[in-house]
Design a protein around this nucleic acid. Structure first.
Lengths: 154, 154
DNA sequence: CTAAGTACGACCTACTTGGTCGTATATTAA
DNA sequence: TTAATATACGACCAAGTAGGTCGTACTTAG
C-alpha cells in the first residue's frame, strides 16, 4: 500500500515548482539538491511529468523546468495514479483497470474494497497541489496518540 | 495498491472454511481445488494462517484444516495487514510502521494520506469474515456506471 | 504397513524498484 | 564559434519481492 519513491520524489519536486510558480525555470540539478532526489533518476521522472503535461521544460543554458498548469489544476490523484498505477485494492472494483471477477469469493469483497477505493479516490482526486500546499502540517504526536486510543494501528 | 495473491488466496480459503465451520476438517487438496489456488503454494499460506491462530490443523489421514475461531473474530484488516504489511501510504502516517519524516514536502501529505488510511483502517478492522460472508454480491454494472458518472476512475 | 494427510526448508524464475551511465542535442554568453 | 550548461533518452544494472515448485520428514486412520 505504500507509495513508491517515484511518487514521493515527484511530489517533492512539484512543490518546489509550485512555490516558484510564474518565475524563471529551475534546472534539474537544483530541484534534485533542494529535495534530496538522485539527479539522474529525477531526469526520468521529469520527462514523465512533462509527458503528462504537468511541467514544461526549457532547453539549453538558463533552461530548466516550470509548472505547465496552475497548482489548482493538478490533483494528487493524477500523480499517484500515474506513478503507482491503479489505486483499487482488487481488479473488480477498479474502473480504469477493470477485470471481471471469475472467482466467487473474490466478489464477496466488492462492498468493502469499493468503499475503501471510493473514499481514497474522492479524496485524492479532489485534492489539488495548491490545496496541499496551503495546508499546515499536522502535529505528529496528536495524530499518533489518537490512533493508539482507537487501537486501529495500520 | 493492489492486494497480493497471497491475501486473495487466503480469503478464498477462509471463506470455504467459514462455510464449513463446525464440521470436519478440509484437506489442503480440496481447499486448493475448490478455490483454484496452487496446492503447494497454499501449504505455506495455511501454515502462516495457523501461526496467526485463524485456522488449526489435524494431521494424518482424515486430517485437514478448520477455522480456529468463529468467523466474527477474524477481521479483514488482520488478514490484509499480515500478508500485505502496513496499509499506510507513507511511513509517517502509519502507527505500526511509523517513521518520522525528515523531508518537509512529504509531511504536506499527512492530512490527505491520514484520511485515506484512517478510513481504510476503520472499515477493514470492523469488517469480520462473517459480515463479508453474509453480504450479497453487489451488481457490477450498477457500481461501474455510478463511478463513470462521478468521473473518479481509479 | 500403507495411503493420505500436514510441516517445512531449499530453491527457482520473472518482474519491479530504484537507480546509474553514455551520449546526443539545444541554448546562450563570452 | 566555442565552451558551458541545460534537457532528452535509451541502455544497463543490482537488489528485492512475488509467486511459486520440489523433496522430504513426520503423523495418523484403517
Amino acid at each position: 500500500m505504500k507509495i513508491s519513491m517515484k511518487t514521493d520524489y515527484a511530489f517533492r519536486v512539484l512543490f518546489t515548482l509550485v512555490e516558484h510558480y510564474g518565475k524563471e525555470p529551475i534546472p534539474i540539478r537544483e530541484l534534485a539538491q533542494r529535495n534530496d532526489v538522485p539527479k539522474r533518476f529525477l531526469e526520468h521522472i521529469m520527462l514523465e511529468m512533462k509527458a503528462k503535461g504537468w511541467v514544461c521544460s526549457e532547453m539549453g543554458k538558463q533552461g530548466g523546468y516550470r509548472l505547465a498548469k496552475s497548482p489548482e489544476q493538478i490533483t494528487a490523484g493524477e500523480v499517484i495514479r500515474h506513478f503507482d498505477g491503479v489505486l483499487a485494492p482488487i481488479g473488480c472494483v477498479s474502473v480504469f483497470g477493470y477485470e471481471p471477477c471469475d472467482k466467487e469469493p473474490k466478489c464477496r469483497f466488492r462492498r468493502l474494497f469499493l468503499d475503501v477505493r471510493n473514499h481514497a479516490a474522492r479524496l485524492m482526486d479532489r485534492t489539488t497541489l495548491s490545496a496541499i500546499f496551503a495546508e499546515k502540517s499536522v502535529e505528529t504526536d496528536e495524530v499518533l496518540s489518537m490512533e493508539f486510543v482507537n487501537g486501529a494501528g495500520i
